[in-house]
Design a protein around this nucleic acid. Structure first.
Lengths: 218, 218
DNA sequence: CAGTAAACCTACCCGCGAGTAGGTTACGGG
DNA sequence: CCCGTAACCTACTCGCGGGTAGGTTTACTG
């Protein structure tokens, strides 16, 4: 009844901090910030509560550290897959694949970032919003790059950020949808989005536009 | 120093319930479920705490009633703008316009539904998720309808639900983006999405597909 | 102009969970 | 082999906020 040296004891601080952060991400993602208790985090981490406080600080501190670590991991994962030398469509494709791949491998991270971080008012929400806004701007830059190369109109360029926001949201939504439909590969998800969105962009560039065939448009 | 009859007193239950629900939506949207206190709801509603309990029940009850009321309002608003006799593209267009219009007029409702409802684990999350799933299915039906009319391939049809999820997410994301960029009309937002997505759908139907020009596709 | 029912309030209880005081045990260096 | 320090724990305090007991006031009703 003692699998691995009976009880892993006296581990260096560095290791414990990692364990506690891992546990915290798990607990926060499962229950949400407010519903999560420090006792539970401590228990999941296999550690007593004062350890959590001495190593990671208050509950807010702990949550902030979770958010920042997971956000960095996600951004790094996406950045690692994207090479700015690639053509815009390949950049989008690679970014999407990296994104979905990360989400598939790190559900808890994704849930914390997507669901919890925004619902906790205050500085967290702002921090996450800014990070998301930066992602949107990066995507917008890719969209604009494509457009200007092919002589896009100012009208479309003005809307680039909106379109980018839509694309980012579409990817996030697909990631959530994926949780309920796991029998799809990350690559397939990414190609769906590319087919849906890129051809839309392409037609915009060609000057094609969809218009409602009724006059009323407030 | 007494604007309207000094103090609105002894109002019928029906009216008070509305006021309390309005206040609750406001408070929940601003602070999130857990951070919101019943005292604050009572104060915003201009009523004492026991009133809230006798009329609307526990905090969970109150939240559930908020969610259901606002969800119904949103769905009704969208449904009112969509006529199933219309062509699929017009249905999407009308639905999007109604959606953005509602969000513009009811920020708190939208925030509660979008941000808070999911982060409160348990039955609420499930309820909201199901509502969202139904919306996605409706959109998917429109997509499929278009496709089959024009002889869409099975492959694309299989992915219709995923595409619908992406579209719904795109709309939600645009709605959030809108909060920071209010100098855009709801109609413009809807037309952006239609241009982006519909032309994408259209090309899919025509058999055009975007493919990565590298072999690796897990 | 009672009397009754519904609207409404003040003032409290109490459990849960954030945060801490103060000690105990094991490892590493001399 | 012993001592210092870093790892670690048990056992608390205490305030916040969900929920309620029990009474008071106003409006309608005959």
């Amino acid at each position: 009844m003692q699998e691995k040296t009976r009880r892993a004891r006296r581990l260096p601080r560095e290791v414990r901090e990692r364990q506690i952060l891992d546990a915290a991400v798990e607990v926060f993602s499962a229950n949400g910030y407010h519903a999560a208790s420090m006792d539970e985090v401590a228990e999941v981490a296999g550690v007593s509560k004062p350890m959590v406080y001495t190593y990671l600080g208050s509950k807010e501190d702990l949550f902030a550290k979770c958010i920042r670590r997971e956000a960095k991991r996600l951004l790094d994962a996406v950045a690692a897959g994207v090479d700015t030398d690639m053509t815009p469509d390949m950049q989008l494709w690679s970014g999407l694949r990296s994104f979905f791949s990360f989400v598939g491998d790190n559900r808890s991270s994704w849930l914390v970032l997507h669901r919890q971080a925004l619902s906790v008012g205050g500085s967290f929400a702002e921090e996450i919003s800014q990070m998301r806004a930066r992602s949107i701007e990066l995507v917008a830059a890719v969209v604009v790059a494509t457009g200007t190369k092919q002589g896009i109109g100012e009208e479309a360029e003005k809307s680039a950020e909106g379109l980018a926001a839509a694309l980012v949201g579409a990817a996030e939504s697909l990631a959530v949808w994926w949780l309920d439909h796991p029998d799809v590969s990350d690559g397939l998800l990414a190609s769906w989005l590319m087919n849906l969105v890129w051809l839309g962009f392409g037609d915009l560039v060609k000057g094609e536009v969809w218009t409602p065939n009724f006059p009323a448009t407030t």
